[in-house]
Computed example of a mutant assay.
Amino acid sequence: MSNLTHFNEEGRAKMVDVSDKPETVRIAKAQSSIEVNELIYEHIQSNQIKKGDVLAVAQVAGIMAAKKTWDIIPMCHPIPLKGIDISFNWKEQPHNKWKLEIFATVKTIGNTGVEMEALTAVSTAALTVYDMCKAIDKGMIIGPTFLLEKSGGTKGKDFKRNDVEI
């Protein structure tokens, strides 16, 4: 049997009690992406999207989403986040496409990790880019979205993804 901690004795969902865990510095980094056509890329780069500065809005949306993760993911704890950084990197793709890579680093000092906050941040930033550009083309592709690394905690279970180019 696996060590699933989000179930009570009746086999029903519960939020894990972390009150006995010591506070430590915890950091998580996540990545997502959105592939857009060349016209969208050019419009974003020249700030010609009618809804505004796409990357600035996506950055703020990602930060706001990280802060509200506990509101939308049922078993997440409300965490006092100490830092959130969202960054972007463009990569040219074949067939006149561009991939916008989205990175989030989230930090806290607490008794539970911030992986979900980092993943929520990059997901929301990608969705925001889609929302702001969908009038030009609805064929954008979001993802993959994944955890790059996490550190902190008391069990020494740091994680660093080795199967993707960063």
Rank of each mutant, 00 (worst) to 15 (best):
residue 2 S to I: 15
residue 9 E to G: 13
residue 11 G to V: 14
residue 12 R to I: 15
residue 14 K to M: 15
residue 14 K to H: 15
residue 19 S to H: 14
residue 20 D to I: 08
residue 26 R to Y: 05
residue 29 K to E: 10
residue 30 A to G: 08
residue 30 A to R: 03
residue 32 S to F: 03
residue 34 I to G: 00
residue 39 L to G: 06
residue 41 Y to A: 13
residue 41 Y to R: 14
residue 44 I to Y: 06
residue 45 Q to L: 13
residue 47 N to Q: 13
residue 49 I to F: 13
residue 49 I to Y: 03
residue 49 I to D: 02
residue 54 V to P: 03
residue 58 A to G: 02
residue 58 A to W: 08
residue 59 Q to D: 11
residue 61 A to S: 14
residue 62 G to D: 05
residue 62 G to Y: 02
residue 62 G to M: 03
residue 63 I to T: 12
residue 63 I to Y: 11
residue 64 M to I: 05
residue 67 K to F: 01
residue 68 K to S: 10
residue 70 W to Y: 13
residue 70 W to N: 04
residue 71 D to L: 10
residue 72 I to R: 11
residue 76 C to E: 00
residue 76 C to P: 01
residue 81 L to S: 11
residue 82 K to I: 09
residue 84 I to P: 04
residue 84 I to W: 03
residue 86 I to P: 13
residue 87 S to L: 06
residue 91 K to P: 01
residue 91 K to D: 15
residue 91 K to V: 12
residue 94 P to F: 10
residue 95 H to Y: 15
residue 101 E to H: 06
residue 103 F to A: 00
residue 105 T to S: 06
residue 106 V to W: 03
residue 107 K to Y: 15
residue 109 I to Y: 14
residue 110 G to F: 05
residue 111 N to R: 01
residue 114 V to K: 05
residue 116 M to S: 09
residue 117 E to S: 02
residue 119 L to G: 02
residue 120 T to W: 08
residue 121 A to K: 01
residue 125 A to E: 09
residue 126 A to F: 14
residue 126 A to V: 03
residue 129 V to P: 04
residue 130 Y to C: 13
residue 131 D to N: 10
residue 137 D to L: 07
residue 137 D to P: 10
residue 137 D to H: 09
residue 138 K to L: 15
residue 140 M to C: 14
residue 143 G to D: 10
residue 144 P to H: 00
residue 144 P to D: 00
residue 146 F to G: 09
residue 156 G to E: 01
residue 159 F to S: 05
residue 161 R to C: 07
residue 164 V to D: 09
residue 165 E to V: 13
residue 165 E to I: 14
